[in-house]
Amino acid sequence: MNGSPDSLPSLKDQLALHQRLVEGDPTASSDLAGVFLDHLIDHLVQNNRRIQTDFCEQAAEDALIALFKNPRSFNPTRWRSLSAYLEMSAQGDLQNLLRQEKRHHRRRQSLESVELSPQAGKYLGKEEDPSLSLQIEEEVESAKVQVLPAIGIGLTDAELRVLDLMLKGERRTSIFAQAYGISHLPKKEQKAEIKRVKDKLKNRLKRARPGHEQPS
């Protein structure tokens, strides 16, 4: 499977698979894994090229297992397709995994630096306290995980691709245009259209942020 949307079942068939899961068909998890696992791994690998494949595989598995255990986490009335939901969920799981990995790495480094120091940590003051930057990083990642599913609701697949790129820090209009499927338009129009989509997504990000008050 190459992970392209063409290799996935139709939206109707995706919903039928999900319905079997909701109705408690014990074979539905096996069929869903058969349909989506390779696609999700390919999707994550293609969209996170700097990340080790192993993490992508684990995140794709995490997203599927979570759906198997809580089938109603996917609400067909709020998401355009099951594949879009799973892609977003797997991306969130990947960020979680990376956060955990960073935390373990930093703890290891921190312990090693204390152990190796002749003064056994005497000079590790506030400025060098690894827990401070870690704490900040964790809060940012945690906010992303909380916010991401809420932002994705109701977005088209093309908009979700743009969102993926934004979260990865992509800045090139040509890449956004390709993801959004408007590479054929003149550059000026591409720029204007991408700006419009990005503004829409930024507004959603702002609204979904914890603590954001809805206008009455």
């Binding site: 499977m1 014990p26 998890s29 894994a33 058969g34 696992l37 390779d38 791994i41 595989e57 794709a60 598995e61 599927l64 297992i65 198997f68 255990k69």
Partner: peptide, 19 residues
């Protein structure tokens, strides 16, 4: 048969939710 499926099947061997 995908190797990925085999890997997932191995992973859930400790989880009583799965056969």
């Amino acid at each position: 048969m995908s190797n990925h499926l085999d890997r997932l099947a191995r992973r859930v061997e400790e989880d009583p939710f799965f056969l």
